[in-house]
Amino acid sequence: MLKSTRSKEFAIESLLLAVSAVTVVILILISLFLFGEGAALFKDIPFLDFLTGKNWYPTSEPPIFGLLPLLLGTLLVTAGAIIIAVPLGIASAVFISEIAPPKVAEILKPIIEILAGVPSVVYGFFGLVVLIPRLQQLLDLPTGQTALAGSIMLGIMALPTIISISEDAISAVPDFLKEGSLALGATRWQTIYRVTVPAALSGISAAVMLGMGRAIGETMTVMMVTGNAAVIPGFPGGIFAPVKTMTATIALEMGEVPQGSEHYHALFAIGAVLFIITLLINLIAEAVKRKYRFKVGS
């Protein structure tokens, strides 16, 4: 009896640890499969040619697998999304945590959660039927399916991430800091931009990083609104032209490729690059957040 409860407890704890470790195993398996399937491409094509190749012609004869147009497509659309989402998101977070009366804040928060809940394919559909025709008309473009359309939709989709994490960071700023400033005769706004926002800056930066991660990894929406032309986008004109992102390429082309073909491996190679990028973003966001926790704690 004495021994048996103890060994039972030990068995349970070991089992729980094993289940938790499954998350690590999954992450390792993802890396193995992505890199394994992706690396097969480089038997035939030098890695650098893939990374810096300016053309993505997967079905030409011979096929050309250059990542650059897709990578730049992703970066362009993401940059646009961030330009839209960051000011809106941070301003909204400041409004909710510092200006809105608590009752109003309690109403606003679930409304913003709705944005996080809408499936990406619904965003894509909305962009396709509502945004694109209007963009085309308004800017007098040959097609509304542009990097800009992608940026607008991704900007909206990144908002809930940016707002909720920034808001957490801003609310975590201790009251005595704000009160100190107010007591010196500063207005609420001066307190917000001189004291509160700077104190929450690392949390806000983490929020922006994670919003960016969400935008880079988004697939269905961009695929439905950016026109999917794999060309290196010009600047700044490319904003108003179709682009193809890395995610859209994978989702669009995987259906048609024979397993084990170069093209198949090339799509995995794109996935691996995407995985590394989002991994880095997450690690940076985590490091930034840690720093901010430390600051508030001490």
Binding site: L29, M254, L279
Partner: peptide, 22 residues
């Protein structure tokens, strides 16, 4: 484990799709 969970949370769904396929 915590880092793994964070990174899984940030991994794009299309990457999960690729993994599921493979």
């Amino acid at each position: 484990i915590q880092m793994a969970i964070n990174n899984l949370a940030g991994t794009p769904s299309v990457v999960f799709g690729l993994f599921g396929l493979a």
